[in-house]
Amino acid sequence: MSLPPESREEAIARLTKSASDLETRTTPRISQEMAGHAAASQAWKIIADLLGGVFVGLALGWVFDYFTGASPVGLIGGVLLGFAVSVWMAWRTAQRLMAEANKFGEPTSVPFDDEDEGA
């Protein structure tokens, strides 16, 4: 027994529906808990960028001072340079995260709850 012939438009519509059904079944659903963990890990990454840049600048400044003998210049310059680089890296990470968040549209507002303020 063969299938009844269908027009080209009907076949395309049927295949499009099948493809969208398959996509909804295979798209991973992210729970609120997983989203919270992802946000926390990104926050820790930004903090690590900020602290790491300062400490690397401090270490490079100390090495510069050790080999050249220009005692406070290397430390001060290294810390300032490390701080500037770490702020730039944190800004770049925040911009990337905002671009990813904007893919999902505007966040929905949480309604105001009077009970949260306390009496």
Results as ranks from 00 to 15, higher is better:
M1Q: 09
M1F: 12
S2L: 13
L3H: 07
P4K: 10
P4H: 12
S7K: 05
S7C: 06
R8F: 10
E9M: 05
A11T: 11
R14Q: 04
L15I: 08
L15W: 06
T16W: 00
T16V: 03
K17E: 13
A19I: 06
A19H: 05
A19G: 02
D21T: 06
D21V: 01
E23C: 02
E23A: 12
T24G: 04
T26I: 03
T27F: 02
R29K: 15
R29V: 05
R29Q: 14
I30F: 09
E33V: 04
G36P: 03
G36K: 12
A38M: 14
A38W: 03
A40H: 06
S41E: 14
S41N: 14
Q42A: 10
I46Y: 07
A48F: 15
G52Y: 07
G52P: 03
G53Q: 03
V56N: 01
L58N: 04
L58F: 15
A59N: 08
V63W: 12
F64Y: 15
F64R: 08
Y66W: 15
T68G: 04
S71L: 12
S71A: 11
G74A: 00
G74Y: 01
L75I: 09
I76N: 02
G77E: 02
G78F: 01
G78H: 01
G78N: 00
L80R: 00
L81H: 00
L81G: 09
W88H: 08
A90M: 02
A90K: 04
W91F: 12
R92D: 11
E100R: 13
E106F: 10
P107L: 03
S109M: 11
P111F: 12
P111Q: 10
F112A: 11
E115C: 04
E117R: 13
G118W: 00
G118F: 02
A119N: 14
